[in-house]
Structure formats: structure tokens, C-alpha cells
């Protein structure tokens, strides 16, 4: 596998356009947030249809998303900004609802929304309401977590059952007429990260291995766990080997995924993270995560191998080894 499946083929728009235009050492690693001078900084734009869905809405999604990106850097989330693009005619009542849930989410995560901006565009130029949040966190711990830090022998842990957010939103669009007992998993993960780092410590990023056991944290948002572990495999030049039977998926999600023909590994979560920790600390990490309500169903789902670098493999229930590749676009059947 001189070239590996992925690599050039999976150059995203981000790399092709923005990394090229903005190139600088802080952007280069393409982590969830940038880290410098004791601060972590991140931004995220939120578009979701529908705006309101079981378990959440675009408001708490926008707050939790940015809080989580900061938490994944090992930072303590502090201050958020919020930008709104509203379509002319967007109901004020809905806007109030969004604002209220943002306030509630900020309170729950212990952050302040300290600045913002609002623009209204003509009807048809936007779909209701878009929200952009940016956030600043402080690096209170001497950790440097990175997707490039995974090493052979490490364990891959997911903090809870996957795919609930993505499937909930898909069903909430109402086109499928399917009843399912599902709620979005949207949640702030900062206190869960605290518990984990308190128990195991975080890598210091100098590659010496004398830091803590947690190498990398990623929230499994767009593209789901599959995309996150592919990014880790690529950045660390390691193989991620997942165990199909070990991946926690709630029956309702599994059922909907089966109906829709979707692999839960690719479905977005908004309150789940993937942690790569040193193999000998896997039990401690798991115990720590499970002590927190958001991590009660955490599970080791795989491990890091040295070969084949850059690829994610899934050991299937049958004992086969399937490649879990980074998708270039929407999943399309490949079978002829």
C-alpha cells in the first residue's frame, strides 16, 4: 500500500482551498481548534433541518458544538460569540426559542455568550436560521492533544452509543413517517473531558510519551466516528482497527440505520467523543468515563496498529476485515 486508499483522493475542499489560502502553523494540523498563548480558539457554523428536533435545536447544537471543540483541545471553554443569519420572515417566536436554548446550554456548559451579530437576508436566500459560534477557552492543563499523537498499542474509546443525533434529525424531517424513540445526543462534553484528564492525564505533545495517557480527543460530529478515526489514522500514520461488535449502537438507531441502509459509523453525533488513550490506561480511562453520566456507556471499540498506516479497518462479526474509508461524498452503493 505504497499510496494507501485515501491520501490524495481524500483531499477535502478545506485542504484544497482554505489551507492553501490561509496557510500558517496554527491552522496546519487542522485540529478542532487552534491553540496558542494558553488559549484555545475555535469556530463553527451550524445549519440543520429541521431547526427543532427531539432532544435539542440549532441553538444548543451551536453552543455545545463550540464548547466541545474547545474541550477536545483539552481547554476549559470560557467565552462564546454567536452570529445569526436569518431569512426574512423567520418567526420571532422561533428565534426566542433558539436564544433560550442557547442560554440554557451555555449555563450548563459554564460558558458566557459575550458578543454576537445578526443579519437578515431576503426570503429564499437562506433556510430559516443559521448560527455561527466562536469560542475561547483557557488551557489550564499542560496538555497538547492531537490527532497526530496516536501510537500503536493505543486503545480507541467512544464515550457512548453513536449516531443518535444524525438519525434523530433525519427522522425529524418527517418525510419518512417513522416513529422511533430517539433523541439527539447533543451535550457539552467539557466536564466529561475533565473527568478523563483528571484520571489519566493528557499527552504533552512533545512525543516523548512522558505526558499523560490521553493522546487525542475528537467529537464525532459530521461524518461520525468513521471520519474521526480516519483523520486520526491519517494524521498519526497508523492503522485504526475497530471491532464491529464492540461499537455501541442503541437498538432504535440500529433499526433506523438498517432501514435507511446507513452505516452508523458514519452518522453524526453531537455529544459523543472518540478518545485515543495509551493501551495500558484503557481500563482507567473507561472507568473514569463511565463515572460520568455522559460516559456511562463508554466502550473500547478498537486499537491502534502500526500497519497499514492511514487506513481504518473493521473486524466484522464474521471475522472479515473491511476497509472503513473516508467518504468522498454521500455514501453511494459500490456494488455492481
Amino acid at each position: 500500500l505504497a499510496h494507501g486508499a485515501g491520501g490524495k483522493a481524500t483531499h477535502t475542499l478545506i485542504e484544497a482551498v482554505f489551507l492553501e489560502a490561509f496557510r500558517n502553523p496554527m491552522l496546519e494540523p487542522l485540529e478542532d481548534g487552534a491553540v496558542a498563548d494558553g488559549l484555545a480558539f475555535t469556530t463553527d457554523a451550524f445549519v440543520v433541518t429541521p431547526l427543532f428536533f427531539p432532544g435539542g435545536d440549532i441553538g444548543d447544537l451551536a453552543v455545545n458544538g463550540t464548547v466541545n471543540d474547545l474541550a477536545m483541545c483539552g481547554a476549559r471553554p470560557r467565552y462564546l460569540s454567536a452570529g445569526f443569519i436569518l431569512e426574512e420572515g423567520f418567526p420571532v417566536a422561533d428565534l426566542r426559542r433558539v436564544a433560550a436554548s442557547m442560554a440554557e446550554a451555555a449555563r450548563a456548559a459554564g460558558v458566557w455568550i459575550v458578543t454576537g451579530d445578526t443579519k437578515v437576508v431576503e426570503r429564499g436566500k437562506a433556510d430559516g436560521c443559521y448560527v455561527t459560534t466562536s469560542g475561547i477557552g483557557t488551557l489550564d492543563r499542560p496538555v497538547r492533544l492531537s490527532a497526530a499523537s496516536a501510537r500503536p498499542g493505543d486503545a480507541v474509546i467512544v464515550s457512548g452509543p453513536i449516531g443518535e443525533h444524525g438519525i434523530t434529525v433525519m427522522l425529524a424531517r418527517g418525510e419518512l413517517d417513522i416513529e422511533a424513540d430517539l433523541r439527539s445526543d447533543t451535550a457539552p462534553l467539557n466536564t466529561l473531558v475533565d473527568v478523563l484528564l483528571d484520571a489519566c492525564g493528557g499527552a504533552d505533545g512533545d512525543g516523548s510519551g512522558d505526558g499523560g495517557a490521553v493522546r487525542c480527543l475528537r467529537d464525532a460530529t459530521r461524518g461520525g466516528v468513521a471520519t474521526v478515526v480516519n483523520e486520526i489514522a491519517e494524521a498519526s500514520r497508523v492503522a485504526v482497527v475497530l471491532d464491529e461488535d464492540a461499537v455501541p449502537v442503541r437498538p432504535a438507531v440500529r433499526g433506523a440505520c438498517e432501514l435507511l441502509g446507513i452505516d452508523p459509523l458514519y452518522v453524526a453525533c453531537e455529544g459523543r467523543m472518540v478518545a485515543v488513550v495509551a493501551g495500558d490506561s484503557a481500563d482507567a480511562a473507561l472507568a473514569a468515563l463511565r463515572s460520568h453520566p455522559l460516559g456511562s456507556e463508554a466502550a473500547v471499540i478498537g486499537r491502534i496498529n502500526d500497519d497499514p498506516p492511514g487506513l481504518v479497518l473493521l473486524r466484522t462479526s464474521f471475522g472479515g476485515t473491511r476497509i472503513v474509508d473516508l467518504l468522498v461524498g454521500d455514501p453511494l452503493p459500490r456494488i455492481c
Partner: peptide, 15 residues
């Protein structure tokens, strides 16, 4: 032309 064929990705990686 299938963007997700691993053979396509292999080819694109050769370029």
C-alpha cells in the same frame, strides 16, 4: 468514475 471505489482512490493517489 465512482468516487468511492477503492480502485478509483488508488488511481487518484498515483497522480
Amino acid at each position: 468514475l465512482h468516487p468511492e471505489y477503492l480502485s478509483t482512490k488508488y488511481a487518484l493517489d498515483l497522480e
